[in-house]
């Protein structure tokens, strides 16, 4: 009955397509706006006449300014380096943490699991003050290392918590069977658990990547030199001069900056979706 209701064509429009289209427009309009602004010449951008939703004379001048008149390429490289490093560090730490909490069942493992979850709830806007003092004392202020080491403070709790769910879904018997088959803990982790938790690893990796790629607060407070900045901070601090917004270059910077994440998502989208629905494939 329910299937019939959903499958007759006019009804499908009402129940599925129209809501989806509305949803897509709301979601995608900012991206569209960003994209056309990046390609508009300044004159067209400031003009009060004409159709604001279209580009008449597309130009690459904002991209040229971005690449040759600012440190944008350096920011991009910094962002890649910091994001990849902190994601890898966080994933590695989270795998061990989640496995230990879920499967080694040491005394107090439940409390540790809960503690990690609570740590995730502490907002970065509170945490950055003590972290700043630690960054100073370690002498890594205004280096990329400052971000590579601080990003895991919010990435590890998140990834651990996510991976715990995946590990929990893997039947105990598999590990016991492997134990009888002669596997060590390490071999169980690398040969049984990790291959089965690949969707979880991908989800965690993508989340960690996106969170650190877009991170703003720590990048703003722990970095001051232009050549150490990341894309989100660099674009905001150096393309807004006083009250002058270089809208074209800003949008071009945002556009280029969001491409890697978009590529990553589209590359892993199938795994990602499978991961989100919690399907540990049998």
């Amino acid at each position: 009955m329910a299937a019939d209701y959903l499958t007759s064509l006019p009804r499908r429009w009402v129940t599925i397509y129209i809501p989806l289209i509305v949803f897509l427009i709301v979601l995608l309009f900012p991206f569209y706006w960003m994209a056309i602004t990046a390609f508009k010449p300044d004159a067209e951008l400031m003009s009060a006449t004409g159709n604001p939703f279209w580009v008449v004379q597309p130009t690459l001048m904002h991209f040229r300014k971005l690449l040759f008149d600012t440190a944008y390429p350096t920011w991009l490289w910094n962002t890649v380096l910091i994001t990849v490093s902190s994601t890898l560090v966080s994933l590695a730490a989270s795998v061990f943490a989640a496995y230990a909490i879920e499967r080694l069942r040491f005394r107090g493992s439940r409390q540790v699991g809960l503690g990690i979850f609570l740590a995730y709830l502490v907002p970065p806007s509170i945490l950055f003050i003590p972290l700043a003092s630690m960054v100073f004392q370690l002498g890594i202020f205004d280096t990329r290392l400052a971000l590579i080491l601080t990003y895991p403070t919010f990435l590890i709790p998140f990834c651990t918590w996510l991976l715990m769910g995946y590990f929990r879904a893997i039947p105990y018997e598999l590990e016991e069977c492997a134990l009888i088959d002669g596997a060590t803990r390490w071999q169980i982790l690398t040969r049984i658990i990790l291959p089965l938790a690949v969707p979880g690893l991908i989800s965690a990796g993508i989340f960690a990547f996106t969170l650190s790629w877009n991170e703003f607060l720590y990048a703003l407070t722990f970095i001051s030199a232009s050549e150490n900045k990341t894309v989100p901070v660099g674009v905001i601090t150096e393309l807004v001069e006083g009250d002058v917004y270089h809208w074209g270059a800003l949008m071009a910077g945002a556009l280029v900056g969001s491409l890697p994440v978009a590529v990553l998502y589209s590359f892993f989208v199938e795994h990602y979706v499978a991961g989100m629905t919690g399907a540990v494939k049998e």
């Binding site: 039947p171 018997e173 598999l174 016991e176 069977c177 492997a178 134990l179 009888i180 088959d181 002669g182 596997a183 049984i192 291959p195 089965l196 494939k281 049998e282």
Partner: peptide, 18 residues
């Protein structure tokens, strides 16, 4: 377990799915 020289067949088979 691995040094006991035994083999076990589990109720839900416990085959490695991957």
């Amino acid at each position: 377990p691995k040094a006991r020289d035994i083999a076990m067949v589990f109720q839900n088979y416990a085959l490695y799915p991957h």
